[in-house]
Design a protein around this nucleic acid. Structure first.
Length: 242
DNA sequence: AAATTCGACAACCGCCACCGC
DNA sequence: GGCGGTGGCGGTTGTCGAATT
């Protein structure tokens, strides 16, 4: 156990220094990429192979694109993630100059937040909808109460007129009562207006509503073509990068 | 002004597949 | 087929500066 542990502890960890970067670049320029476990020996670095490879791939490679992710790149990331899920390296192949690590980090910091915000928005909207519905129901109850009073009034009017034998008023009361009954019945059936849903959504809406951070089912549906035809932009990007 | 929280990014870790022996 | 070495990948943690309280 002793020797192995000593060797393990010899590897440097943490942020890379400028000197370490210089040594690694020098090594790769001389020997090319690969054989990362030899780097420590040949370049005089106290880093293990994995660490060297990662530093090169994610930071030192000359073909890396610096700077912020552009809106266009963001769009590509969204579209590819909808297809591939968390397969960051596959997504990265669609974005020259960007690394899987970069895309993964970007996704976590930007889109996970949006999902959170989106679900809060949805909760707010649901709350507002419930409130509106309660208000409407209260209005309905009040309206029904009024209707009942009206009917009572009409009934008493009708009875009064009937007793007084006035034929034209009897006829008018009957019509008004019929109208009120019809009106009340329609309102009691109601609610359809509140339960109506959007017939279709934009791509973004599908994504946000579904939850970006767990798209497995969404991806499965994509594969069987549920959303595929509604997302023309994806059809051109659906080819694997193998 | 100090403490805390947040955001962005870098780096590490564990797992797995591939390959040569 | 088993084994060890190597590299790739995705998830997670660490770090640090900026913003907020």
């Amino acid at each position: 156990m002793g020797n192995w542990r000593v060797i393990e502890e010899e590897w440097r960890k943490g942020p890379w220094t400028a000197e370490e970067d210089r040594l690694l670049i020098q090594y790769v320029n001389l020997h090319g990429e690969g054989r990362w476990n030899s780097v420590a020996r040949f370049a005089g670095l106290k880093r293990n192979g994995k660490s060297c490879r990662l530093r090169w791939v994610n930071y030192l490679r000359p073909d890396l694109k610096r700077g912020q992710i552009t809106p266009y790149e963001e769009k590509i990331i969204l579209e590819l993630h909808a297809i591939w899920g968390n397969r960051w390296s596959t997504i990265a192949r669609g974005l020259p100059g960007r690394t899987d690590n970069e895309i993964k980090n970007y996704w976590r910091t930007h889109f996970k937040k949006k999902v959170k915000k989106s679900s809060t928005d949805k909760a707010e909207k649901t709350k507002a909808r419930l409130l509106k519905r309660q208000q409407f129901q209260q209005q309905q109850q009040q309206q029904q109460l009024n209707n009942q009073n009206d009917m009572k009034r009409l009934v008493s009017l009708f009875e009064e007129k009937e007793n007084n034998r006035v034929p034209n008023l009897y006829s008018q009361g009957k019509q008004e009562m019929a109208f009120l009954y019809q009106n009340t019945a329609n309102q009691e059936q109601g609610g359809g207006f509140f339960y109506s849903t959007k017939a279709s959504s934009k791509y973004e809406d599908i994504i946000w509503d579904y939850g970006l951070w767990n798209l497995d089912d969404f991806n499965a549906n994509l594969k069987i073509g549920v959303y595929y035809n509604s997302l023309p932009c994806m059809q051109t990007l659906a080819t694997p990068f193998y």
